[in-house]
């Protein structure tokens, strides 16, 4: 177990360096004259240029200089200093304001997934090959096949503008009701996957030996399904939901952009639109770390939850 965690941690560190190196190499290393960019239109004196070159090690060309500046960027990232966006705001402040909204949205999506996905999955798994089962299979295929950039604007148009069941956009300080529709759209993808996962898992476990034993002991069906089957079937679902929570927090770019929710994804969306390089890089760097850490936690959780799984 310890060996597995260590190996997984090592892998994550490699992925972290790999991704941040790509981010850094593409965003900073290739740009023109950073000193002139800092000064804008004004002329730079030779003394200022020499001072800045000395300070940021800009004269060190080749591999050494590149890695010096890369580690500088990493150090700032790990200390939480993400620099300023082009509008002059601290990126750290922008993120601090945006995180609570994004977490709220992710939790709503998660609740939708659990309430509808897992329940429907259990029913479909028990009544396998029935009408309900076949209907949910077709529905989930549709949901899995339709991209978010189709689902989000169409839901916004039909439910928000045409039939006016939900507010079409969330605005500056969204309440729970305004976040409900985006939460459903965001959660629909994980809902479909969770449903299929639960269904397969329940259907498989219903044929297991321990279910036969329980039935021959004379237990009522509700107890067999509710206690014996459900407990074993939910292991893969729980781990999947863990991965999804990480994905939902980093993957809400489209949904937040379409519904005008001032979360992390929305700021990234706006950063891309307004060509705000530092903002994009800052947010992407943070999101990559969130994604990697949540994947690590889930992998370890998987090994803890299911004793049949042992990593060597």
């Amino acid at each position: 177990m310890l060996r597995f965690i260590l190996r997984r941690l090592l892998q994550m560190v490699l992925a972290f360096f790999g991704t941040t190196l790509i981010v850094y190499a593409l965003m900073f290393a290739g740009q023109g004259d950073p000193i002139q960019a800092l000064a804008g239109e004004r002329p730079v004196t030779a003394a200022q240029r020499a001072y800045l070159t000395e300070k940021f090690h800009l004269d060190a060309t080749g591999v050494g200089g590149f890695f010096y500046r890369y580690f500088d960027y990493l150090k700032n990232l790990l200390q939480g200093d993400l620099g300023q966006s082009l509008t002059g705001r601290q990126i750290g402040d922008i993120l601090a304001a945006a995180w609570p909204v994004t977490v709220k949205l992710a939790l709503i999506a998660m609740a939708v997934t659990i309430v509808f996905g897992v329940t429907a999955g259990v029913i479909a798994g028990i009544r396998r090959a029935g009408i309900f089962d076949n209907a949910t299979l077709v529905l989930t295929l549709l949901v899995l096949g339709i991209p978010t950039i189709v689902l989000a604007p169409l839901a916004q148009y039909l439910l928000g503008v045409r039939w006016q069941l939900f507010p079409p956009t969330a605005g500056a300080d969204p309440d729970l009701y305004a976040l409900l529709l985006p939460g459903i759209v965001l959660g629909s993808l994980s809902l479909a996957t969770a449903l299929r996962l639960t269904r397969t898992s329940v259907a498989e476990n219903l044929r297991a030996d321990y279910v036969r034993t329980a039935r021959s002991k004379g237990l009522v069906k509700r107890r067999i399904v509710g206690v014996h089957v459900l407990r074993n079937s939910l292991i893969p679902v729980v781990t999947f939901l863990g991965v999804e929570l990480g994905n939902l927090m980093s993957g809400a770019i489209i949904t937040e952009g379409v519904f005008n929710i001032p979360g992390v994804g929305f700021n990234l969306f706006r950063g891309i639109r307004t060509e705000d390089g530092p903002l994009v890089v800052g947010i992407v760097s943070v999101l990559v770390v969130v994604y990697l850490v949540s994947n690590l936690v889930v992998d370890v959780l998987y090994a803890v939850l299911d004793p049949r799984i042992r990593y060597e």
Partner: peptide, 24 residues
Amino acid sequence: SRVIDIVLGIPLLLAAIVLLKRVS
């Protein structure tokens, strides 16, 4: 296999945003 693991750990949309910003 380790290379596959690492590439699998990179979120597609985020990496694509950074890579494509370069050729915008």
